[in-house]
Simulated assay, not measured.
Amino acid sequence: MDDLLVPPANFAMVDHGVFRSGFPQKCNFGFLKTLKLQSIVYLSTEPYPKSNLEFMQSNGIRLFRFAMEGSTKSSAEIHREIIEEALKVILDEQNYPLLIHCRSGKHRTGCVVGCIRKMQRWCLLSIVEEYRQFAGAKARNCDERFIEFFDVSNLKKSSQPAICFRNTFNFI
């Protein structure tokens, strides 16, 4: 049983070298090792557990923490700046392979991934469908509106690496 690989809840590949999930538990460490992660983008105000920090240190993984409150209220203006800063880290291929996560991998992670999909020029219907797939019955209208109105032009081209997600981005 020790060699059983268990992915974190809501785990999925976003793009080459970029993954998403809920909060990794100790039982997920073996699986995470197989990803050869360089970085973790953590979207929460909650402290990172000591066991996770030790796992990261022993595997040479950098932690980028963005203090996003979990909320059912529309707090788009507060999250907009934080999400833009997180996207700068996520778009930098020097940080790959990279895992994006919050507590459950649904709302905060879903908003960030939704913004990535906008940058990839996915149609809004597909972006919302993916968000709902991970959020399940707890999909939030405020998150969907945030994604819909997120302006990708706010991310200046000068802050982007020359190649993003293996050329899957077409910037406006």
Rank of each mutant, 00 (worst) to 15 (best):
L63I: 11
M13K: 10
Y96E: 00
K36A: 13
M56D: 01
E77W: 10
G17E: 04
F165H: 02
N167P: 04
S158V: 11
N28L: 05
S75R: 09
G17L: 06
L91T: 03
L87Q: 07
S104P: 02
C123I: 15
M13N: 10
H101C: 10
I116R: 12
P47K: 13
D15E: 12
V41P: 07
P49Y: 00
I78C: 05
R140Q: 07
H16E: 15
T34L: 08
C27R: 14
E93T: 11
I78R: 14
L43C: 03
K106M: 13
N167L: 10
P8M: 11
C123D: 14
N167A: 11
I116Q: 03
R20H: 13
N28R: 01
C111P: 09
G30H: 11
M13E: 15
G114D: 07
F64I: 01
F66P: 07
G110Y: 03
K118E: 10
D15P: 06
S159L: 08
M13H: 10
F165N: 02
A67K: 13
R117H: 12
F149R: 01
L43S: 02
V152G: 04
R166I: 02
A67C: 13
S126H: 14
A86H: 07
T168F: 06
S104G: 11
V89T: 12
H16V: 15
G114Y: 07
H101I: 07
F64R: 00
M119K: 12
M13Q: 12
F150I: 01
I100D: 00
V128H: 01
N167W: 12
I100K: 02
Y96A: 00
S159A: 06
L99R: 05
L4R: 15
M1G: 14
R62Q: 13
L99T: 06
L91Q: 08
F150S: 02
G22I: 11
I163M: 05
A162Y: 05
V113Q: 03
R132A: 10
D143S: 13
N52W: 09
T109K: 11
R103H: 14
R62T: 11
C102Q: 03
E144M: 14
C27Q: 15
M1N: 11
R65C: 11
L5K: 15
V6D: 04
I100Y: 06
R80A: 09
L53N: 06
D143M: 09
P24N: 03
R166P: 00
Q133R: 14
F165Q: 01
N141W: 12
Q57A: 15
F19K: 04
F169K: 09
K156T: 09
R62C: 08
C164Y: 03
G136N: 03
C142M: 08
F29A: 05
V14N: 12
